[in-house]
Design a protein around this nucleic acid. Structure first.
Length: 781
DNA sequence: CAGTGAGCGAGCTTCCGCTTGACTT
């Protein structure tokens, strides 16, 4: 049955468009890129104008087979991939694979997925834009050259298995530099003056409100002097100012802003946001979730107008167009919005519903009126000096979009000490009885550490990365162990408070917790080391403007003003030279730091990067003597750059013998590759996070060992020694193990009653579930 | 799973952007 074949990228989109076009058209999906450079090897022919070698990706073999079949039976093929650089390239790859001459390809694009737009689009195909395709090839080749030439340098000079890339290395640099800023930060103390006044409101009720000195006093002395001066002062209202203001709603969601808001409002990590959004998209609840555009289609605008007027009244409606801020935006999709605005809520689990609700509110609010605000500022003077205290309050006169949605901000503002937002009506010249005044010591704060979402925001501002890669980039830099997401407990800090009450001044020292962090990104030692190395040797690539600059050149290629391989050549020649000289001349780096002398032996104590991570050692291996240095690995949260001599020496308290069990065997505690553990004979038991290997009691350690022995005793269900096959109890229930391969036990069989014949049959029928161990899982990444 | 901190190694590791799977050592 001949017909027309339309190829789009996403299967969910194929379904929607298929409905619009009817039986005459077959709409299929190619699931994104179908070909790419092979994973291993450079696969770029430097001599032949950087000709890339493309292969069909393993996971796309079936897709391509299916598309070929459909193409053979079609009398017309329409390439309807996304309208951006990558989409154009995907269409070109489809041509190459399906045997279509690029000059004869029929390229279809539309900006809005409505029946009218799509039907019009398939009737008016254009030609393939080879300049745009070449800009994509340049992008792809550049990324491969950068990644696959710098990474091996790191293997030789720092540590095997490391990676570098145009996006990830800069992301790590941001975190490294922020951390160094924070470490170097010296808090500066100052004194904040807060006064509380009590007045009687018209109904006769006593109301207390707060006023502050706009600027803090620099020193304790100044603050105390001020309190002394005003001890007997009379306070009066010296000015009242009312200022109208307004607030404007935020633009509809892009991938980046959705990730930020879901993080702030719902506490989602970016990967979770994308997972949930994907589900909402596949179920037809929202538009595409990987987008850099804030544009709403005419269809959506109309629906939102109707919804706002119906739900809130027409004074709440205001039509708005949002220009996309990001210069790099490709705008192949709409903003992220509900597919059907009249659906306020959807079916699904709690996460689905919360994210949908967020998207609904943001979308609707974006087409609503400004909120009108009245800001009141009251100045309070006294008769003892010229200082002015200020009380501020905000009243919302008209809610506007705030009725639906209010965007959050990144930095949690300082905890307000019992602030009274409402100010009772007071008159100019009115005397105000002082209830209490405090001078409280405050400290300046360093720039905040990045969260996953605030890092995405920063990357987007720099034009680095794309909506489809923000979440994967964040997980890559964590997987490579350049960065860890952690919560850390703060430290106690003392601060002074002077209180003026009933004409007496009292002083007090209080403590607060400072520097506590929740789910923030911290660089690891290897992240610090690699960033320093790259900054030293590949400063151009690490420049925050590198991507923006090459993007300009990709644009030149896309406009046909420059040949793509010429552009790459201009970059590669000097770049490769740097790779060569760095490989030849750069020293191996280990971040070695001398901490001091071991008081017991007089040997030097050194912190450095070892083969298995950051470590400290006492003594050096000298060729002349056969004395061996002692080693210990750093604990989580410790860093080569900041560890002190004492902290380093403490690490050598392990391994230690806690005592002996009933049978007189040694109970040992140590920290291994997988964390702290207790050992008796050949039984190892991990020490759970809530216990410390330095302080764990013999009793607790023995309990852990007994529990572990129990598990071990129940581990082996059957052992067919001759055949080298075992039936074992694993983390996910019983399984069969032969050599390094594992096999599932069919659901209708009970592990206990399996005979050797049963087991052999299962092995014969099944492929191993893990394909010989590591490889299988590595590939999935 | 589990000590390590290498001089002689074999062979391997790695990028960024498009898109969704299939189901567990």
């Amino acid at each position: 049955m001949a017909g027309k074949l339309v190829i789009v990228e996403s299967p969910a989109k194929a379904k929607t468009i298929g409905k619009f076009l009817g039986k005459e058209y077959k709409v299929a999906s190619c699931f994104g890129h179908i070909r790419d450079l092979p994973e291993s090897g450079l696969a770029i022919n430097i001599e032949k104008n950087y000709e890339p070698e493309y292969v069909i990706s393993d996971d796309k073999k079936d897709v391509v087979k299916e598309l070929k079949k459909l193409a053979k039976n079609a009398d017309e093929i329409l390439l309807a991939t996304d309208e951006d650089r990558e989409g154009e390239a995907i269409s070109w790859h489809l041509c190459e694979v399906l045997g279509i001459k690029p000059s004869e390809a029929k390229r279809v694009t539309y900006t809005e997925i409505t029946e009218k737009a799509v039907k019009h689009a398939v009737k008016h195909p254009r030609k393939l834009n080879m300049d745009l395709v070449n800009a994509q090839q340049a992008r792809r080749v550049l990324d491969r050259l950068v990644g696959y030439e710098i990474s091996p340098v790191l293997w030789r000079k720092v540590k095997p298995q490391l990676s570098a890339g145009r996006v990830q290395s800069v992301a790590v640099r941001l975190i490294v530099e922020r951390e160094r800023e924070i470490r170097a930060f010296q808090p500066v103390a100052s004194y904040k003056i807060i006064a509380h006044f009590t007045v009687t409101d018209p109904s006769g009720k006593k109301v207390t409100f707060k006023a502050e000195r706009p600027v803090n006093f620099k020193t304790e002395n100044e603050a105390l002097n001020f309190l002394e001066e005003v001890k007997d002062a009379v306070f009066t209202v010296s000015a009242i100012e009312k200022r109208p203001g307004k607030r404007t709603p935020a633009a509809p969601f892009t991938t980046s802003t959705l990730q930020q808001e879901a993080s702030r409002k719902l506490g989602f990590p970016v990967a979770k946001t994308m997972l949930v959004a994907q589900r909402l998209y596949e179920n037809g609840h929202i538009t595409y979730m990987r987008t850099d555009s804030t544009t709403l289609s005419d269809f959506a605008l109309e629906a939102i107008e109707k919804e706002v007027k119906k739900r809130y009244g027409k004074e709440f409606y205001q039509k708005r167009q949002y220009a996309t801020k990001n210069e790099n935006a490709q705008e192949a999709h709409e903003a992220i919005r509900p597919s059907y605005i009249d659906q306020v809520s959807i079916e699904g689990d709690a996460d689905d519903q919360r994210l949908y609700e967020l998207i609904w509110k943001r979308t609707v609010a974006s087409q609503m009126a400004d909120a009108e605000i009245e800001k009141t500022v009251i100045d309070i003077s006294n008769n003892k000096n010229s200082e002015v205290l200020r009380a501020q309050a905000e009243v919302v006169l008209f809610e506007g979009f705030l009725k639906v949605y209010n965007e959050s901000v990144d930095e949690e503002s300082e905890a307000d000490e019992g602030a009274e937002v409402m100010i009772p009506p007071v008159k100019n010249g009115q005397q105000l009885p002082l209830k209490e005044m405090v001078a409280i010591e405050r400290f300046t704060k360093p720039a905040p550490r990045y969260t996953e979402a605030s890092l995405v925001k920063k990357l987007e501002e720099l034009g680095i990365g794309r909506p489809s890669t923000y979440a994967p980039t964040i997980s890559t830099i964590q997987k490579r162990n350049y960065v860890v997401k952690e919560s850390r407990e703060g430290v106690e800090r003392k601060y002074k408070v002077f209180t003026l009450c009933d004409k007496k001044i009292t002083s007090e020292i209080k403590t607060e917790i400072t520097g506590a962090e929740k789910h923030k990104l911290f660089p690891t030692d290897i992240g610090l080391l690699v960033t320093d190395f790259l900054m030293e040797n590949f400063r151009d690539i690490m420049d925050y403007n590198f991507t923006a600059e090459v993007e300009k050149e990709f644009d030149e290629v896309a406009l046909g003003k420059m040949k793509w391989y010429k552009m790459i050549d201009n970059f590669y020649k000097p770049f490769h030279q740097v790779v060569e000289t760095t490989t030849k001349e750069a020293q191996r780096v280990s971040g070695e730091r001398l901490l001091g002398e071991d008081p017991a032996s007089g040997e030097p104590v050194i912190a450095r990067m070892g083969r298995y991570g950051p470590m400290v050692q006492i003594g050096k291996s000298e060729e002349s003597s056969d004395k061996k240095p002692r080693f210990a690995r750093l604990k989580a949260g410790q860093s080569i750059e900041t560890i002190t001599l004492q902290e380093a020496l403490d690490l050598f308290k392990l391994p230690r013998v806690l005592g002996y069990d009933d049978a007189g065997k040694e109970v040992k505690v140590n920290i291994g590759r997988f964390g702290p553990y207790v050992q008796v004979d050949k039984t190892f038991a991990s020490i759970p996070k809530d216990k410390d290997p330095y302080t764990i009691t013999l009793e607790d350690a023995l309990t852990l060992i007994r529990e572990k022995e129990d598990i071990n005793a129940n581990r082996v269900i059957h052992n067919f020694e001759k055949e080298g096959i075992q039936v074992l109890n694993g983390r996910y229930g019983p399984y069969i193990k032969k050599g390094n391969n594992n096999y599932k036990i069919p659901k209708d069989k009970q592990a206990e009653y399996l005979t050797l014949e049963d087991v052999l049959m299962i092995i014969g029928e099944q492929g191993p579930t893990n394909k010989g161990g590591k490889r299988f899982f590595k590939r999935k990444r």
